[in-house]
Simulated assay, not measured.
Amino acid sequence: MNETIVCVVGNVATQPVYREVAAGPSARFRLAVTARYWDRERGVWTDGHTNFFTVWANRQLATNVAACVEVGQPLVVQGRLKVRTEAREGQQQWASADIDAVAIGHDLSRGTAIFQRAVKPEAPPVAARPEPAWETPRPADPQDPQDAQVRQQAEAVVAVT
C-alpha cells in the first residue's frame, strides 16, 4: 500500500523491447525526462537536467506499447516508481529508476494520435445444451388427432431402429 505513484512526461529514448514470458507479455523502454525552465536573464526556455527511467509494461499494455511506441515520441507515463541500487563489477554504487507502468499515452500537447481499441481474442464457442423439458406431459387423448399422429410417428421411429 505504501507505493510511490508518479506521472512523468518525456521522450522515448530506446526502442521498446517486447518479450513473451511465462507470466504474459512484457515490454520495456527508456524514457528521457528533461526539466525545462524559463531563463529570465536570456529570455528563453532552457533545458535542465535529464532523468532516465526504465519503463516496464505488462500484459495488454506491453502488447500495445510494442505496436505503437517508437523512439523520439513524447509520452505521458503513470506508474509505480522503484529505485534500485547495486554494486557492479568493481564499480561504485549504481542506481536505476524504474517505473512499473499502469498507463501510457502519447502527449497530445505536442502532437496528434489516432486511438484504436485493442481487439480481444474471441473465446471458443461453447456448445449449447438443450433446455430440459420442465413441463409435465399432458395425458394423451385418444380422440385428439394430433396425439394419434405423434404416436404413429414415434412408433415408426421405434420400428426403424
Results as ranks from 00 to 15, higher is better:
T63L: 15
L31N: 03
A35T: 12
L61T: 05
W94I: 04
A103P: 00
E41Y: 13
T46F: 08
C68I: 07
G48V: 11
A97K: 02
E70T: 01
E20D: 13
F115C: 06
A118S: 14
G72I: 11
V44I: 12
V76R: 02
V102D: 15
A62F: 07
R42S: 12
V102Y: 14
N11T: 00
L75E: 13
E20G: 08
S26A: 15
P25D: 06
A32S: 08
R40D: 14
R36W: 12
A101H: 04
A32F: 04
A23N: 10
W38E: 10
I114P: 00
G79K: 00
A62M: 01
E41I: 08
L75A: 10
V119W: 10
Q93D: 05
V69Y: 07
R117W: 11
Q78L: 02
R88S: 11
R40Q: 13
C68G: 13
A35H: 07
A101E: 05
A27H: 09
V12N: 00
A22Q: 02
F29W: 05
V33C: 08
R110E: 01
R80M: 05
Q93T: 02
T50K: 06
Q92L: 12
R117G: 09
L108W: 03
P74Q: 10
T14I: 10
R59P: 05
L81I: 07
Q116R: 15
Q15L: 11
N51S: 15
A103Q: 12
Q73L: 14
A27M: 08
V65Q: 04
V102R: 15
S109T: 14
G72Y: 07
F53T: 09
E20N: 12
C68F: 03
V55G: 04
V119K: 15
D47R: 07
C68K: 02
R30F: 03
S96V: 11
V44Y: 05
R117Y: 08
R59V: 03
D39H: 00
P16E: 01
V12T: 10
E20Y: 02
A66N: 13
E20F: 04
E86D: 08
R88T: 02
T63S: 15
R42V: 14
R80A: 10
R40N: 15
V65F: 05
V21R: 10
H106E: 03
G72T: 04
L108I: 03
A113G: 11
L61V: 13
V83A: 01
Q91T: 14
N58K: 15
G90A: 13
R30T: 10
T112D: 06
A67S: 14
A66C: 13
E86Q: 10
Q92T: 05
K82E: 04
Q73S: 07
A95E: 09
L61K: 08
R110V: 05
T46D: 12
R117L: 13
L108Q: 09
Y37R: 13
V55A: 09
R30L: 00
L75D: 03
A32V: 06
A13E: 03
V76K: 04
G111P: 02
A27R: 06
L75C: 09
W56R: 00
P25Q: 04
T63N: 15
A101C: 08
S26D: 03
V44R: 07
A113M: 09
A101R: 05
Y37M: 09
P25H: 05
A62R: 01
Q78I: 12
R42H: 13
